[in-house]
Design a protein around this nucleic acid. Structure first.
Ligand code: MN
Ligand code: MN
Ligand code: MN
Ligand code: MN
Lengths: 227, 227
DNA sequence: AGTGTGAGTTAGTTTAATCTAAATCAGATC
DNA sequence: GATCTGATTTAGATTAAACTAACTCACACT
């Protein structure tokens, strides 16, 4: 089990790997333009980086089709995702950050912390399994829980659901969700959906009725509630 | 009090400013070769950076003599030193780091944290005034305590002293100091000094006698003890 | 005053990461 | 099957930060 040389990755490389992980997690290829959009860089910048990453063996590139992570790349991506989510959890629970402001801070810190620090934070938190947005935290060994979740926008009327994960990192949306009681763990029943991409209406178990437009509903990822 | 543009500083620039601060804190100029040695880069790298920093107005360069910080540069340096020392204190007090391992971690984190995070950490610690090595922490406003300290290597025999600051960041030396009880706050009396740069012998108020070689004694900075 | 030496600077190269402009590809449409 | 179009790649430039090799300066010593 001797790991070879392992040149340290740059901040840029680490961010590319995370984005490629997210874009290809449903099995497909990550497209150049999608990577560019998520990282807010120009497409040629991505082409350049893609060449270097595939020479290093972190990704597989099929020209004009897209990229996928190799085993090595996936390992590195999951390590960064663990760092990011442990940091978000720590900042929220120990330093009073709210779940809107935490992403930006973690986005920078994830590249600067040592493994040691992350494990100390995880220890102080009692090895948390989910971040403040409900996203699963990969283990130090690189395993991640993969639960099929259903977005609220496509849940059938009548379904009893548990909100598990809030899939946005926009502070404004997050603070709106929080004030609506739409947070991970919330129990709800879908009572109505309007046609033509219209809003979904839900009844929250511990609060009132909420009408959620399609765009926001897509970010709310749920699981059939245990009853 | 409107601050102009303020382009964000790079990691490199921030480290240069800190080093220049330390090298010129006794009033003089920081020499190119000293900067190079402390940052572990080649002298021409320093010359190049010096040109850029003086164009930006962060330092004043007198060719062949050295550099000094401008007001703006000093402000930026003190901000980094605050970050570094708050981080060291936080890692030590909240996350179980020992005072040997903490410097390296802070050296990277100081460039990634936000002002907000630093102030949260400082708040959680009760606005600490000294870091784990006894070094004063600049305030958020950029003020730093400047106490004249006497190195143990030059303290007269017979002096009653309080050890205030341990001026090294080498983990091996730090752990040796800790096991000898030579930590900030320790009270001691100088009982002997051998000639020709020989060792200093001290009696620790709450422990026994210690013989300290010249090199280590120079790192122990003391103040005449209040009695 | 002349000279030697070490410190400092200049010149030129390298690598990572970005950009814009231009060329090319692949798949959809006619 | 030819053509259009948007996505992708290539080409070439820029900036930060480092390096080595070569040159130059300041100053101490003779
Ligand atoms: Mn990041
Ligand atoms: Mn998150
Ligand atoms: Mn640093
Ligand atoms: Mn310190």
């Amino acid at each position: 089990m001797h790991t070879v040389h392992e040149a340290p990755l740059t901040r840029s490389v680490e961010d590319y790997l995370k984005v490629i992980y997210h874009l290809s997690s449903q099995g497909g290829f990550a497209a150049t333009s999608d990577i560019a959009a998520m990282l807010e860089v120009a497409p040629p910048s991505v082409s350049g980086m893609v060449k270097r990453l595939s020479e290093t063996g972190l990704i597989e590139h099929v020209p004009y089709r897209g990229v996928q992570l190799t085993q090595q790349g996936r390992r590195a991506a999951l390590k960064m995702i663990r760092r990011h989510r442990i940091l978000e959890t720590y900042l929220t629970q120990q330093l009073g950050y709210d779940w809107g402001g935490v992403h930006e801070e973690a986005e920078r810190l994830e590249h600067a912390v040592s493994d040691r620090l992350i494990e100390r934070m995880a220890g102080a938190l009692g090895e948390p399994r989910y971040d403040p947005h409900g996203a699963p935290i990969p283990t130090a060994a690189g395993e991640i829980e993969e639960t099929e979740l259903l977005s609220l926008a496509e849940a059938p009327v009548g379904a009893d659901l548990e909100l598990r994960e809030v899939g946005t990192q926009d502070p404004a949306r997050l603070s709106y969700f929080a004030e609506q009681g739409l947070v991970p763990g919330a129990r709800l029943t879908v009572t109505d959906r309007q046609p033509f991409n219209g809003p979904t209406t839900v009844r929250l178990e511990s609060a009132g009725v909420r009408v959620v437009g399609r765009e926001l509903a897509q970010a709310l990822r749920c699981l059939a509630a245990a009853r």
